[in-house]
Design a protein around this nucleic acid. Structure first.
Lengths: 200, 200
DNA sequence: CACAGCCTCTACCATTTGGTAGACAGCGGA
DNA sequence: TCCGCTGTCTACCAAATGGTAGAGGCTGTG
């Protein structure tokens, strides 16, 4: 029925969704197993502990995210504003397709140091490179001068903030569905444009 | 030693901090009690269940937040840009003083409908009024035309995003301390200015 | 057919969780 | 002095949690 590796993958998949939706600590192994249609002990066969399951989930999610963004960066246009634009679009794409990824991001702040390190391992180089690139464009006068780190922080905070799937945002008439995410993404792109376009 | 009501207040206080730091589900009543220096059953004496404790925590936190912001709005200057500026500063103030408030905001997305409603009860009117006011200023030509709801959503997302106390943001050289929050707040203010200043 | 390895299962276990029942200490008022 | 109220305590409990031990079924290969 199922190919040899697929149970493992299905567990990873279900765990990502559940961890993202409800928080790592609030999801039991039993629940993940039930979702997959298997016993808890099968989960523990594939991942010796909940901790290592989380580690694997973070690992694969981060790797996928980095791959998507890397690809976008490589194929992005040369003009710095266009470039930022297409990267922002790329960052939002996995989130639109898979809201649980946003949920996981929301968990960042309360992960154990070991798990946080696992994520940083993947994301740090990416962010560092982006900041460096923005800084270089500023030096070359193709972007308005500013603190690239702060601007990255703001953009990052925005993405993270969307992760709250907020009840509150409903008041704003905003919905955390694909359409809402796209709207917000476009708003962020406009903001970045306004902030970074060279004065000229 | 302790005045009659103070145990209750101390429990609320400790619960806010712990819920914010580590997530509602991950904090046990025992832990809260230990923090206060009291037995778990004393906590259950003051709040008949964990659910009602959470409710009370949200209630008081939201009420305080709204009070702070309301005061800021009332004493804010008339010029719309200045006005937004001083409200943004006000929103950040409780967060700077009490990081756990940010942690609680991060919990928003996974609160039960009942608890989320409790929060919306306080925050909705505030947000609705802000959006209405921004819309009015746009109509009057004192702010650049745009979707006030989306702009509010973006600003809100930023504040929420900061709540992640992110490991990742450290890469950016950013720190989630008071200084870092102030820097980010100022960056957000600049963004809002850039986005909303009338074309003239 | 037999065997070995892979995978999932049943059966437990200790710990922790939110919650209940009720004893008892202190204190102000009659 | 006694009473009743407030607030904290000790003593439990059922359910759920992460995790262990080991049996047994299914598969492809010799």
């Amino acid at each position: 029925m199922t190919s040899p590796a697929s149970t493992r993958v299905r567990i990873l998949d279900a765990a990502l969704d559940l961890f993202g939706q409800r928080g790592v600590d609030s999801v039991s192994l039993d629940e993940i197993a039930r979702e997959v249609g298997v016993r808890k002990q099968t989960v523990l066969y594939w991942f010796p502990s909940k901790d290592e399951l989380l580690d694997a989930v973070l690992e694969t999610a981060a790797a996928e995210l980095v791959a998507v963004i890397d690809a976008a960066v490589r194929s992005a246009p040369a003009d710095p504003l266009e470039r930022i634009d297409s990267v922002v679009r790329a960052v939002f794409r996995p989130a639109v397709r898979r809201p649980a990824v946003l949920g996981l991001i929301r968990e960042l702040g309360r992960l154990s140091p070991a798990h946080a390190a696992r994520l940083r391992e993947h994301l740090d180089p990416l962010i560092a490179r982006a900041i460096e690139a923005i800084g270089a464009e500023m030096d070359a006068g193709r972007l308005r001068r500013g603190d690239p780190g702060l601007i990255a922080a703001l953009a990052y905070a925005t993405v993270t903030g969307v992760a709250t799937e907020p009840e509150v945002l409903r008041t704003v008439g905003w919905t955390a569905d694909a359409r809402g995410l796209r709207q917000l993404r476009d708003e962020l792109r406009a903001f970045l444009r306004a902030a970074l376009a060279p004065d000229s």
